[in-house]
Design a protein around this nucleic acid. Structure first.
Length: 479
RNA sequence: GCGGGAGUAGCUCAGUCGGUAGAGCGUCAGCCUUCCAAGCUGAAUGUCGCGGGUUCGAGACCCGUCUCCCGCUCCA
């Protein structure tokens, strides 16, 4: 306790060195929380009933953004690859799966509570208990046996109590223990238990991957930081099945690939880094784990984990189910249980990150201009069609015609409830990359202007070419 | 869960000594307006987080409770 660096959290130590800290894209988290609510990206859940902790709802713009994030992930992980296929497994699964996977036993923190000051500690973080085995950590007599006391006031400590992070509910009409079932805490198990099905129906050969996007639920002890840690959240996971001897090299391939994905969609490279887990922080299933981290306003935090899970999951499921999950390689005539390299990302965290990193404030003519510089692929609306004058019915009509045409390809919106400058600012703030403006001249020459969100420059194009120009620009942004 | 802070209009907040609720922004409507948050006029919106108590009277004082934020913790 006397060494000051020991009392600092890992988070605080990370930020000590200004040279390695690029700073957050947005200083105050509230800036984004406020924008999200004001413009309809993200709202607190159940707000009219006072809210519910750690659940957030996506509004009209938020659902577009998040869908776009998931689509971009799917494009890069499934659509553009020959060796990865998709899956959508159930949230509810046979309860035995979670026993086999280790989540019933391990996905919990052994907590002890001080009887006098009521502080709670994770048992394995108490001085004198750091090196305990899993058996010891769950031994009711361990506190007395080691003579552990409360570090704060030397009070008596309770026996370790397991706090499992999985949500439970009941399946069927009877609420009894036999009917207990879990909400999945990760999507990965749905992939493992379908491994044989997918292998046989897709006729993929190792190495190949299975990707899945879906909800997961964790009863976190302390959620928070907006959508960063929620109790209900969405994962984008891919399990890559490889020959055991090639696992390390596939791991080395996936890590930079996943980091590059965030950069491709606009996250500043300086605010991304990778960090390898020390042996003592590895999850129960992991042989090796490296995080892609982002510099959030509240510190460097995990965006995505790349894990070498070995054959842990498949082997355990083989053993518990009695079914073979081996792979036969006809070329070498070898039978083996594939190892898994997992990339596990959070859709909410990714959307949050893109939102944060896109935010900027500029000064234009002495006025503050708020811009979400979202990648066009991620932007909720791709185009806004705006009339310079709304009292001319021909102009309004032309706007609607152009918008209707664009809508067949992309999300487009019409707005005439303010002067043009303000309409532009509104679209800037929600990240719309292009605005099409119809003016009086358009009625004569059939041309309109396309205004660019970032440069604020305008280009005049024929109205019947707008759809094509936008499609070209979308394609160019994708690269 | 513990420690600290905060809940008043969609948002940011004011509300004095306890006397019956306000401003700016935003939103909507009308007028005006030919390219980067113009102007004028008008309008809507509050169980003052929720429940109880004290009081003639509570947004304010007391108790309880819920939620949010910061820290501990965590890891998608």
């Amino acid at each position: 306790m006397s060494d000051p660096s020991r009392t600092l959290s890992k988070h605080a130590r990370d930020l000590l060195d200004p040279a390695s800290d690029p700073g957050p894209a947005v200083a105050e988290l509230d800036t984004i929380v406020g924008l999200s609510k004001r413009r309809g990206f993200i709202y607190p859940s159940s707000e009219i009933y006072g809210g519910i902790n750690a659940v957030w709802d996506y509004g009209p713009l938020g659902v577009e953004l998040k869908n776009n994030v998931k689509r971009a992930w799917w494009r890069s992980m499934v659509q553009e690859r020959d060796d990865i296929v998709g899956l959508d497994s159930g949230i509810l699964m046979a309860p035995q799966i979670w026993v086999t996977s280790g989540h019933v036993a391990e996905f919990s923190d052994p907590l002890v509570e001080c009887r006098s000051c009521r502080r709670r500690y994770r048992l394995d973080e108490l001085p004198g208990a750091e090196d305990l085995s899993q058996t010891d950590l769950h031994d009711p007599g361990v506190v007395a046996r080691l003579g552990l006391r409360c570090p704060a006031d030397d009070g008596e400590l309770s026996a370790p109590r397991r706090f499992n992070l999985m949500f439970k509910t009941f399946m069927g009409p009877v609420e009894e223990q036999a009917a207990e079932i879990y909400l999945r805490p990760e999507t990965a198990q749905g992939i493992y238990v379908n491994f044989r099905n997918v292998k046989e129906t897709s006729r993929k050969k190792v190495p190949f991957g299975i990707a899945q996007v879906g909800k997961a639920f964790r009863n976190e002890i302390s959620p928070g930081n907006f959508v960063f840690r929620m109790r209900e959240f969405e994962q984008m996971e891919m399990q890559y099945f490889v020959h055991p001897e090639r696992a390390a090299e596939h791991f080395a391939d996936w890590l930079p690939r996943r980091r590059a994905w965030y950069e491709a969609y606009g996250v500043a490279p300086a605010r991304l880094r990778t960090r390898e887990h020390a042996p003592d922080e590895l999850a129960h299933y992991a042989k090796k784990a490296v995080d892609v981290e982002y510099r959030f306003p509240f510190g460097w935090k995990e965006l995505e984990g790349v894990h070498n899970r070995g054959d842990w999951d498949l082997s355990r499921h083989m053993e518990a189910s009695g079914e073979s999950l081996e792979y036969f390689d006809p070329a070498t005539e070898e039978h083996f249980v594939p190892w898994v390299v997992e990339t596990s990302a959070g859709a909410d965290r990714a959307a949050f990150t893109f939102l944060l990193d896109a935010y900027r404030e500029e000064e234009v003519r002495g006025e503050k201009r708020v811009v979400l510089g979202l990648h066009p692929e991620l932007a909720p609306y791709k185009v806004a069609v705006l009339p310079l004058l709304k009292k001319r019915p021909e102009i309004v009509e032309m706007c609607h015609r152009i918008k209707g045409d664009l809508q067949r390809d992309v999300m487009a919106v019409y707005d005439d409830t303010a002067a043009i400058g303000k309409l532009y600012r509104r679209q800037d703030e929600i990240g719309t990359p292009w605005c099409v403006t119809v003016d009086v001249d358009s009625l004569d020459d059939g041309a309109v202007t396309i205004r660019d969100r970032d440069a604020m420059t305008q280009e005049r194009v024929s109205a019947d070419r707008v759809r094509e120009v936008i499609a070209d620009r979308m394609r160019a942004a994708r690269q």
